[in-house]
Simulated scan of single mutants.
Amino acid sequence: MEIFDCIAVVARPIHDFGDEFMSDEATAAVGLRAGFPPGRGFYCRGRFGVLGEASVSVVQSVQGFLGPQLAAAGWLAGRPVMPAEEAAGLYAQAIQMWGRANVPADVDVEHFNHLAQQLIDAADADALPLFAGWRAQACPSDDPVGAAMQRVHVLREHRGACHLAAVRLCGLSAREAMVINLGDEQATHYGWQEPHPVAAALIPRRQRAEQLTDELQAPLYATLTDRQRTEFAQLVKALTASPAP
């Protein structure tokens, strides 16, 4: 399989499977049991906790696609509950737990882990601090299914960080990209207050941003052989196909 064919096949499933984890009530319940208030506190403190005790403005700049007030409120709501590093560790545990509950039992997660780690190790993390933080988060050696889900998350963070850079390079703001992608109404769900329609002339820039995102990811997938890329695409399809019974 060619590099860009593989990226085209795996990008959406990796993104969507990560979304399922993030929006699942089971994930929220992990945070609630740990003392996080309802809302985005666990999500923000856990996901962005790999940045350390960063200021609100730093978190807002790195995460990109949430409305700035929503990101700020979530980060601040989680701050009294536990230190950032501890929250990131708990979020990693939630990722692993969700993987054990939702990754189909017949997937060759050992081979997925081998190929996914090869991609993760090959990535240049310059200007991608959120990805760098999650790459540095230890994966369990005795839980291959949980580790597979964590690697899905890390790869998702890589593409997300690349996409934020690509969006800005193409002359779009994060708000404009979200409105083009989701529409005005859905963008409000992600914290963009009064998002307003985007000028039609800007819409092609998002497609260019997608292409540039693929180009930024291409060096990772170039480290796999044609056969490995085919295997990886098949494994991603199988891993993200449906929740396990």
Score class of each variant (00 low, 15 high):
R100E: 15
G78V: 01
A54T: 10
H114S: 12
V59E: 09
V56A: 09
R79L: 02
Q117F: 05
A73T: 13
L66S: 13
Q117V: 03
Q63N: 06
L66D: 14
G74W: 07
A87S: 05
Q63H: 07
A101T: 00
P83Y: 01
V59H: 13
A77K: 09
G64Y: 02
P104S: 07
A54S: 09
S57E: 15
G99Q: 11
L90D: 04
E86M: 00
G89Q: 10
L70Y: 06
V62H: 08
H114G: 00
S61N: 15
P68A: 12
A87Y: 01
A105V: 09
G99T: 10
A71K: 06
A87R: 02
A72I: 08
A87K: 01
V81K: 00
P83R: 02
H111A: 09
P80A: 00
Q93A: 15
N102E: 05
E53P: 01
V62A: 06
F65Q: 07
N102Q: 11
G89I: 05
Q63V: 11
A71W: 03
N113T: 05
E110Q: 13
N113R: 12
D108T: 07
R100Y: 06
H114K: 13
D108V: 06
S55Q: 12
E85H: 10
V107Q: 09
W75H: 08
R100P: 05
A88S: 15
P104V: 07
H111T: 14
Q93P: 00
L66K: 08
P104E: 14
L76P: 00
